[in-house]
Design a protein around this nucleic acid. Structure first.
Length: 678
DNA sequence: ATAGGGTTAG
């Protein structure tokens, strides 16, 4: 017997030296001291290399081993599984079978997992039947990984059959079903599975809660989300960064940003995913400034932005027209990350919403693989710029590809027609969407087509279309009809629409303004007063209108009646001067856009305090002659501001581009690109 | 002892 300097042999060496010496050093020591590895110590060594992420060295040890036992094979297979190399896992598994080695439960489990990650249902089923042959039919590990194979391949009904047939199930099997339903957009069924799990008195853990929290996020059920959060706290379930991040995301998706931030602030450790979840939450809910601030904070916490966080930041840039930052994010993505389908689509959306439609198209042509969302984004871009013909051309181009137009594509197309007044095209493609594309028109599609017809004055036809709807029309549809009736003086149908709108009790003050306008135009003063009563009773959502302009690479935001700005005096003086000149040129304030019950003169002054008006004045004051201005507004630009901006563009001889929540208005030389059709 | 279930985006 040779003398071993470590009485317990190489096994204890590996565990004792963890952290102090590298695995390679220990490996070298083992060779030097003449410890000739047997099968068992090789499996330990392979596992150790695998833990440090060094599969190449693990593989060398594996290949040099003379007699390889099941432990050695498993260690090597698991090493590849950890490295996310499912193909290698399968190769080794096949080699193992060829060499007549008897796999065990772990071998099958890992191999089926590899098939799941390759979405290779056929091979997975083969491996599972081999597992059955070797006596692992009722093994929970094999069973759960087999379950997961169906789940990952989107076969939830087959998964359910497997699940119901399992004699033994544990928390992992249940969790697989829960997350499977969540990912398959069947959140209710996910919750039901969890209920069944509770009845069977299986103890929940953090991972299954992640699935449930995601279900609440996708259902938009904040009440259930809160109660699950409470349950986790009461039961003192173990929470880690993943559980906390899913809570942040759930609250954010439900618009509860204070709660999302509170959870986020309390997290002991945050990774890039946690940051991205919150950034995305702010961006999705329209808080562009907060989203971008978080992006900066994240970097000062030494967390590098990744594609996901930057895609969310791009969304924030799009919202407020922050072209300068958007461009620099685009550059960073190209240089350091990956201009792929998702980030590419976010970038083209940013350029188009920041006014650079041609850059958007240029980059659209350079996305190497485009999917339906990329096409939709580009079609929608032409739509918001009022280029209906170009949107149609792109749609026809899309039809030549393998990518199928979906409900969103048609919605973008119809909305492009409605922004361009292309009534015939709208009718034609609306009709064809059912017949050719087999897409049932949704509320959104109806809203587009009603809007298109009503704007063109064809309110009778629009009304007939609404009456033909199978589902009950929502507020958006009646409001679109009503707007058409107001503009074209169609009192009879207008009254029907107005009544419907009031019945549906929207929480949008803009819509009540429309109803009130309509009745005022019809000189029905009792009804005008009635609208105000309804408004007071319901209590409006207070979405403050704000406008933003980028000046010298910095954003400047103005709220309605914003007096806080340091340049306020100058801005007011500017607007007064413009007002004087505008009136001389024939401008008349459209006071019907002010809903309050006040004197005309006060109304006129309020119009001048609209955020877009203040923003334009600020932009004019702080940029050189001839500079184009891009103003973005979170709500819709009001009719009076639209009229005024036409005059302003002529007086100061500037191009003024205003983008509101719906579309672009390009003002130049006294006219707007939308031809007052918007 | 090892193995199966989990977070963010256009």
């Amino acid at each position: 017997m040779w003398l071993c300097p470590w009485p317990q042999g190489p096994k204890s060496l590996l565990s004792a030296c963890k952290g102090t010496k590298s695995v390679a050093q220990i490996h070298a020591l083992m060779i030097l001291t003449g410890i000739f590895s047997n099968g068992d110590s090789n499996s330990q060594l392979i596992a150790s290399y695998s833990r440090t992420g060094d599969v190449e060295s693990a593989r060398k040890v594996f290949e040099k081993s003379s007699q390889r036992g099941i432990a050695t094979w498993n260690a090597m297979i698991i090493a590849y599984s950890r490295k996310d190399s499912p193909v290698e896992v399968l190769n080794l598994y096949r080699r193992m079978i060829r060499e007549g080695i008897r796999p065990d439960s772990s071998t099958f489990t890992v191999t089926i997992k590899a098939c799941a990650s390759l979405l290779d249902l056929k091979t997975g089923e083969e491996v599972r039947s081999q597992a059955v042959d070797f006596g692992y039919k009722d093994d929970v590990f094999v069973g759960s990984s087999f379950l997961n194979l169906y789940v990952k391949c989107g076969k939830m009904d087959e998964a359910m059959a497997v699940f119901d047939g399992m004699p033994k199930r544990d928390i992992v099997s249940w969790t697989t079903m829960v997350t499977g339903y969540v990912n398959g957009n069947r959140a209710i069924e996910a919750v039901n599975i969890y209920r069944r799990m509770q009845i069977e008195e299986i103890k929940a853990d953090g991972i299954v809660m992640v699935g449930l929290i995601q279900a609440c996020a996708s259902l938009g059920n904040s009440k259930m989300g809160l109660s699950i959060h409470g349950y986790i706290i009461r039961r003192d379930l173990p929470v880690d960064v993943v559980v906390e991040t899913s809570l942040v995301d759930m609250y954010a998706k439900n618009g509860l940003l204070e709660l999302a931030s509170r959870v986020f602030d309390k997290m002991p450790y945050r990774n890039v995913v946690s940051w991205s979840a919150l950034i995305s939450g702010f961006a999705q809910n329209g808080f562009a400034g907060d989203a971008l601030e978080l992006l900066v904070q994240m970097q000062s916490c030494r967390v590098k932005p990744d594609l996901v966080s930057l895609v969310s930041a791009l969304l924030a840039c799009s919202q407020v027209g922050f072209l300068k930052l958007g461009k620099s994010i685009h550059g960073y993505i190209v240089r350091r990350l990956d201009f792929d389908t998702v980030s590419g689509t976010a970038v083209i959306d940013m350029y188009s919403k920041c006014g650079s439609l041609s850059t958007a198209h240029f980059l659209f042509d350079r996305i190497s693989s485009r999917d339906s969302i990329s096409w939709n984004a580009m079609i929608a871009s032409y739509g918001i710029h009022g280029c209906g013909k170009e949107a149609l051309a792109l749609f026809l181009q899309m039809k030549e590809t393998k990518i199928k137009p979906d409900h969103a594509t048609l919605a973008s197309l119809l909305s492009a027609f409605s922004h361009s007044g292309l009534v015939e095209e709208g009718r034609y493609w609306f009709d064809l969407m059912v017949r050719e594309f087999k897409i049932q028109p949704s509320e959104k599609h109806y809203a587009c087509i009603v809007d298109l017809l009503a704007r063109a004055g064809q309110v009778e036809e629009a009304h007939k279309l609404i009456e033909s709807m199978v589902n009950k029309p929502g507020v958006a549809i009646w409001a679109a009809l009503l707007a058409g009736c107001r503009n074209h003086g169609k009192l009879e149908i207008g009254e029907i629409a107005a009544k419907k709108v009031l019945e549906l009790k929207p929480d949008d003050p803009g819509i009540y303004a429309l109803v009130s306008n309509f009745f005022a135009a019809a000189k029905k003063w009792d009804e005008v007063a009635g609208v105000r009563k309804v408004m007071k009773k319901i209590g409006m959502k207070k979405v403050p209108g704000y406008s933003v302009v980028e000046v010298n690479g910095k954003l400047h935001a103005f709220l309605m009646e914003d007096k806080s700005h340091p340049q306020h005096e100058k801005i007011v003086a500017m607007l007064e001067r413009l007002d004087y000149e505008m009136r001389a040129m024939g401008y008349l304030p459209k006071t019907e856009f002010v809903l309050h019950d006040i004197e005309e003169e006060v109304k006129e002054r309020m119009l001048c305090n609209h955020s877009e008006r203040l923003t334009i004045a600020f932009g004019l004051l702080n940029t050189g002659p001839g500079t184009k201005l891009l103003i973005t507004k979170n709500l819709r630009v009001c009719g009076d501001c639209h009229e005024a901006t036409k005059f302003i563009s002529k007086i100061v001889n500037r191009e003024i581009i205003v983008r509101d929540m719906k579309r672009f208005h390009h003002f130049k030389n006294g006219v707007c690109s939308c031809g007052d059709y918007w």
